[in-house]
Each structure stands twice: as C-alpha cells, then as structure tokens.
Design a protein around this nucleic acid. Structure first.
Length: 523
DNA sequence: TTAGGGTTAG
C-alpha cells in the first residue's frame, strides 16, 4: 500500500523539500528499491547544478547497502553534465571501494569523467572494471544500442581500439553516436588519420562528428585540415565555431581566432556565442596582450548577451588582466571564483611575476601550497619567473628541487630560468654545471641565458662556449653573435668584436626581436 | 526512473 503511494508520488513533479520527506519515508520503511526513482526525480527536478543536491545525491548513494548501477550511473552522469568531472570520478572511486558492482553504463560514465579530468591512472583502475562490465554485457539477453555503445565507448576511452573496433563491427545497428565514439577513441590515442578514415566512411555526420575531428587536428597541430573540415560544413552552429576558434587559440594563432569570432557575430552570420566562446576569445586576447577587446567582453558584451560568469571564463579574464598589468582587476575577479584551482592560481602567479609584483606572486604560491592545490609545470614557470626578478637564488633552488615531489620533470624552460637566476647572481660556473647535468638536450634558450649572463659579468671564456652552442642550435639568430661581440668589446678584444660583427653583417642576418631567452622573460 | 558521441580557462 505504502509502496504504491510513494511510487505514485515520485512520478509527480516534486520540489527538493518534498523529495527529502519521501526519502525519509523510504529510509524508515526500508523501501530501498525506490531510491533509483528518487534519485532520478531529484536530478530531473533541477535545471542547474546545485551543491546542495550534489551532497544529497552522494549521501543517498553512499548510504545504500548495495548501490545499484542505474542509480550510480545517474549520479555520475549528473556530475558529468555539469562538468564536475572530478566529483564524478571521486564518487566512482568511493563506490568502487565500498564494493559496488559496475555496469557497462557506469564504467563508460566514469571513463568519461576520467578522460575529461586527464586522469590516466584512474583509467587504468577502471580497466579492471571494464572486464566485469564486459562479462555483464555478454550475459545480457536483449542488448540495445545504448549498451553496445557503452561498451564501444568504454574500450575506446580506455585506449583499447582493437576491442572497440571489433565490437563496433559486431554491432547489429550502428548509430551516428557509435561512429562518433570510434572517431573520438582514435583521436584520443593520437591516430587522427584513422579517425579521418572513419569520418569519411560515415553514412551521415553531425556537428559532433566534425567537432571531434577538429579537436583531433587541433591536438596534433594540423590547423589547415581542421579548417578544411570546418569550411565544408554548410550549417555551422556555435559549437562548431567554438571548436575551430579553440583550435586557432590552442595553436598560437590568436589573430585567426579573433577573426573567426568576428565572422561568427557578423549580422549576416549571427551565430550566438556562449561562455565557452568568450573564454576562448579571451584567451586569444591574452596571447596578443589585447586588453581593450578582452575588457569589452567583460564590461559590455557579456551583459549584452546575458551571459553569466563562470569559473572558466573568469579564469581567462584573470589571466588577461594580470598579464596586461591590471593586477587589481585580476584580483577582484580571482576572489569571485567559486573554486580557486591550479589554473586560477597559476594565472595570477604568472601575471604578478611578469608585472613587478614578485612578492605577491610568491605569497600566492605559498597560499596555494597551504590549500593543498597541486602545482604543475606552468605554476613553477610562474614562480621561478618571479623569483628570478628578485634574485632569490636559494629560494629558487628550493623551488626547482621541489618539483620532483609533485612528480614533475623540469623542462628546458625551467632550466633556462634557473640559469638566468644563477647567471644574474654571477654564479656562472654553477649555471654551466647545471646545464651540463641536464637530462635532456638544452635548447638555445638555455645557452642564451648563460650567454646573456656572461655578457653582464664579462666572462669571455664561458661566453664563447655558450655562444658556440647557440650558433649551432639557432644559426639564423644573430642576437647571440651580437652578445658575444659585446663580450669581446667589453674585454678590449676589439679585433674579435669587429670580425664577428662583420660576419653577422655579411650573412645579412637581422637581429630578431625577442630571441628565445627574451621570450622566456616576457612570455 | 535512468544509462551512449563533442567544444571552454593558465
């Protein structure tokens, strides 16, 4: 009697409070099988993400003695559709450790969350669950397209394209989304050519197929192929524009990104941008140091379109303002973030480090460490840049050496910064030793930093060594020759200086503005 | 009652 009553009630539209009351009823009367329905209603009654609901959903699931796969999948998907991939994956791990038996659907959802958070280790963990899911799948009597697709996407997200392909070929009725899952898998493992073969042989395509391909070309730097596919699409929605604008921005072609954006909003095209478009366009502005266009987006355009701020867009603006030296505005936005993550902190640290606010950059880094936010390679670029400007050698060493604590391997750029720091302090031999001990081949920027230091400290011998490497690595950059000539002149070796300057002149080399070590200082 | 494919920030 009660069961029917609660079930009927659950099929009606109820608000959060009413659903909570029903949940109490379910708990008291041990009507566990109704939890799935309750969870579904809780999710569908919400149009936006809410912290409240999210906590509540988690607690319902985790208090179940045996959470069913359907409910678990619904909640994981709730997090995913609201781009809370970390929460989605964390929930899956929690369920897993409490003995939850995964289904094909829950595995596919968890893998999606994993892929979007860049969590490779998680993918490996789920691999084991995938085998269980496959068992479950083979025992299913009436497999529908959704279950087939879940298996295909499960394997393709896990990088097992052989299995994904054989399942795909076995599928009785392939849908558009099945093809898209295959394309996405090949793109993910860097096989963009194979992805393109699939794309070409598809019976029909939608904008998702095209977006996936553009993303693949973007990742491998093939902007031209991306543009070719983009141009061929006759109906272009804002998602397609977003993908292409992102492709330009990610491949350091910010001008083309802005150009395509202006094309998108032209009166005769008039595709409505969303917050993703604006986040990407803001990023293109940052690359160009184009503050006026970016602040127009912030001050006018968002209001005009009725687009609300979100953390991604806000972070893009934080970096724009910080990089352009408007540290106060950057800070105001930074404090408005719902969640200050590694990207937000790094944006502030980089911006402050570049604009003479070194102490603030260092303070932000400490604050970030105290909040247990894991730094990444770019965070260290930011903090080392700040430290280099104030000449804090021992702190820099400490910082540089702490990278491995976070599983980070310093890149040649980080070595460049250390060489610059040691060089400024006049510790040239030490800088040279650091270069000699590098586990990878130093690029011209590393030797360039040493060469620059040798010129400020008048060290001819080491300067010659550094210059020799620079010439080898970047033969067409005359900046290095000029630096060495200055060193000769400073040491009174006028003949050598003259000889070098003449040879630069003869080769017709023009000093390239912003050589690579300058880029490191200004990037 | 639910479950599958894509694009955003340093």
């Amino acid at each position: 009697m009660l069961v029917e009553k609660v079930t009927t009630l659950l099929r009606h539209f109820l608000n959060f409070q009413q659903l909570k009351q029903l949940h109490t009823l379910i708990l008291v009367h041990d009507l566990n099988h109704l939890n799935g329905l309750l969870i579904h209603q809780l999710i569908t009654s919400q149009s936006t993400y809410s912290q409240n609901i999210s906590h509540y959903l988690r607690s319902i699931l985790l208090h179940l003695k045996q959470p069913d796969a359907g409910s678990a999948t619904s909640v994981i998907r709730y997090f995913c559709t609201h781009t809370r991939f970390q929460e989605a994956f964390a929930l899956y791990v929690e369920l897993h450790t409490s003995g939850f038996v995964p289904s094909t659907f829950s595995v596919a959802s968890a893998l999606k969350a994993c892929a979007r958070t860049g969590n490779k280790n998680g993918g490996t963990m789920i691999h084991g669950d995938l085998a269980k899911a496959e068992e479950l799948f083979s025992s299913m009597t009436n497999k529908d397209v959704v279950s087939w697709n879940s298996m295909v996407s499960g394997y393709s997200r896990n990088g097992d394209m052989d299995k994904a392909l054989s399942l795909f070929q076995e599928m009785p009725e392939r849908k558009l989304s099945s093809w898209n899952a295959m394309i996405s898998g090949y793109v993910e493992c860097g096989k963009v050519g194979l992805a393109r073969n699939f794309y070409n042989s598809m019976p029909e395509r939608n904008s998702i197929s095209c977006i996936t391909m553009i993303g693949g070309y973007s990742k491998c730097g093939d902007v031209e192929s991306a543009r070719e596919l983009f141009s061929k699409m006759d109906r272009k929605d804002h998602l397609l524009y977003n993908a292409m604008i992102t492709c330009y921005a990610k491949n350091s072609r910010p001008k083309e990104a802005l150009h395509l954006f202006s094309e998108m909003i032209e009166p005769n095209v008039k595709v409505q941008p969303d917050k993703m478009t604006l986040a990407t366009v803001t990023s293109a502005c940052s690359q160009l140091g184009e503050l006026s266009f970016g602040s127009w987006i912030h001050d006018c355009y968002m209001k005009q379109l009725g687009i609300a701020m979100d953390d991604h867009l806000c972070t893009a603006l934080v970096y724009l303002y910080a990089k352009c030296g408007s540290i106060d505005t950057a800070f105001n936005l930074f404090h408005k973030l719902n969640k200050k993550d590694v990207v937000a902190y790094t944006s502030m640290i980089l911006g402050c480090g570049l604009n003479g606010k070194e102490q603030i950059a260092i303070k932000l880094f400490d604050e970030m460490m105290e909040s247990n936010i894991r730094p990444n390679l770019l965070t260290f670029t930011g903090v080392l840049t700040a430290l280099s400007h104030v000449g804090m050698v021992e702190e820099s060493y400490h910082c540089f050496n702490s990278m491995k604590k976070y599983g980070l391997v310093p890149t040649p750029d980080h070595y460049s910064l250390m060489v610059e720091i040691l060089g400024r302090a006049g510790r040239l031999e030490e800088a040279h030793d650091l270069i000699k001990g590098m586990p990878m081949k130093p690029h011209a920027g590393v030797w360039g930093a040493l060469l620059l230091a040798c010129s400020t400290h008048n060290n001819v011998e080491l300067g010659e060594t550094a210059a020799k490497h620079c010439f080898e690595l970047e033969a067409d950059n005359s900046g290095y020759g000029s630096l060495l000539a200055n060193i000769y002149a400073g040491a009174g070796r006028w003949e050598d200086a003259k000889r070098l300057r003449n040879s630069i002149h003869e080769k017709g080399l023009v000093k390239i503005p912003g050589s690579s070590w300058m880029d490191h200082m200004q990037a």
